[in-house]
Amino acid sequence: MELDFSALLLGFQFTSPGPTIVQIGPITIRWYGLLIASAVLIGVSLSQYLAKRRQVNPELISDLSIWLVIGAIPAARIYYVLFEWSEYAQHPERIVAIWQGGIAIHGAIIGGAIAAVIFAKLKNISFWQLADLVAPSLILGQAIGRWGNFFNSEAFGSPTNLPWKLYIPPERRPSSFVNFEYFHPTFLYESVWNLMVFALLLTLFFMAVSGKLRLKVGTLFLVYWVAYSLGRVWIEGLRTDSLMLGDLRIAQLVSLFGIMLGLAGLAWLYVVKRPLPDVVSPYQK
Rank of each mutant, 00 (worst) to 15 (best):
residue 247 D to H: 14
residue 236 E to Y: 05
residue 99 W to A: 02
residue 206 F to Y: 14
residue 107 G to N: 06
residue 196 M to I: 15
residue 36 I to Y: 12
residue 163 P to H: 14
residue 73 I to R: 00
residue 167 Y to G: 13
residue 123 K to G: 05
residue 262 G to N: 07
residue 184 H to C: 01
residue 265 G to V: 03
residue 9 L to C: 05
residue 126 S to T: 07
residue 262 G to F: 06
residue 266 L to M: 12
residue 155 A to Y: 05
residue 164 W to Y: 15
residue 229 S to C: 09
residue 187 F to K: 04
residue 253 L to K: 02
residue 83 F to T: 00
residue 208 A to C: 03
residue 86 S to K: 07
residue 99 W to V: 01
residue 202 L to A: 11
residue 10 L to T: 08
residue 241 D to S: 01
residue 175 S to P: 11
residue 137 S to D: 13
residue 84 E to W: 08
residue 136 P to H: 14
residue 109 I to R: 03
residue 58 P to V: 04
residue 202 L to Y: 11
residue 256 L to M: 10
residue 218 G to K: 13
residue 94 R to M: 01
residue 193 W to S: 06
residue 11 G to T: 09
residue 9 L to P: 05
residue 216 K to S: 14
residue 278 D to E: 15
residue 241 D to K: 12
residue 27 I to Y: 13
residue 241 D to R: 06
residue 74 P to I: 02
residue 229 S to Y: 01
residue 204 L to N: 06
residue 240 T to N: 10
residue 246 G to Q: 07
residue 213 L to F: 08
residue 197 V to P: 08
residue 252 Q to A: 08
residue 25 G to Y: 00
residue 218 G to Q: 14
residue 21 I to D: 08
residue 97 A to S: 09
residue 109 I to M: 09
residue 164 W to I: 09
residue 52 K to M: 07
residue 186 T to R: 12
residue 51 A to V: 02
residue 190 E to Q: 12
residue 3 L to I: 15
residue 98 I to A: 09
